[in-house]
Nucleic acid binder design. Structure first.
Lengths: 137, 137
DNA sequence: ACCATTTCGTACTAAAAAGTGCGTACCGAA
DNA sequence: TTCGGTACGCACTTTTTAGTACGAAATGGT
């Protein structure tokens, strides 16, 4: 059963949001940034996700051609997921979200001693760039 | 009744997505890009939205300090909504989403003669920049 | 013959988000 | 005194999304 989609988008932004908008998708995609991953690896590295949700989200990402699914004809099964070219281009979106989101969390919860709020899912090529952009407003 | 939020974000990207992730939020924010708008103006310009949803989404955006609500003490009531400074900084996120989403729609539905798919919700300061970025991959 | 391993499928349930419909306050004008 | 215009609030229903629980295939090793 493929995901229900809005019949109509008033603009491209909405289409993009729909693609990455699932509860687990950003986390899954983040894990794939460091290279292809097997189903089981993903399952272990995305804390709390059930197998059903993992499979479902991966299917949707595959359908949208964000990730590729490579099946090795072995037993027990081996399946690897990785970014497509189109998926790789989401990097700019991730960066923008990470920068704004980081500022947002500092503003909403400035005195939290909880370092969780500073976790960065996206690893910038240039870490200094993030630091700079993050604190200039 | 304020929106239920995830208790925990594994990273800032997720927090950001949560803020702009409502079904109508991108559209509403787009309308505000051209300046402050009254409740009624927004209602008329966002096709299909109900008053309940408009109010609800605006309340959430206000709570997250993305938009400001200015009440004029007149009868009948007059209320104006506009971006906060933090809200204005979402521009980078919008750009990234628009660029990627535009490519995505071309790829998913390339032969659609329907110009709807080309609607841009975000007006770039430099239109050429968009065109350039949109077609280079 | 039986078991372990890996990657799912699927019926069912629960929770969250969105949509419907109707009501309210305010005050000046007719 | 009733009416119009504006910006909502709220109870309820429907739709969508997420979670639970369990089952299945394939095959090499014991």
């Amino acid at each position: 059963m493929t995901k229900k989609r809005q019949a109509y988008y008033s603009c491209s932004m909405e289409a993009a949001l729909n693609v990455i908008g699932g509860k687990w998708k950003l986390t899954i995609l983040n894990r794939l940034l460091s290279g292809p991953k097997r189903y089981g690896e993903l399952h272990r590295s995305v804390a709390g996700i059930t197998e059903k949700m993992l499979t479902q989200q991966l299917r949707e990402l595959e359908e949208d051609q964000i990730v590729e699914r490579k099946i090795y004809p072995v037993v027990p099964p081996k399946v690897e997921y990785s970014f497509t070219e189109s998926g790789k281009r989401l990097t700019d979106v991730f960066k923008a979200l990470e920068i704004w989101g980081s500022n947002f969390q500092h503003r909403i919860n400035p005195i939290s001693g909880n370092a969780d709020h500073d976790k960065s899912c996206y690893t910038f090529k240039d870490e200094e760039q993030l630091a700079e952009l993050t604190h200039n407003a």
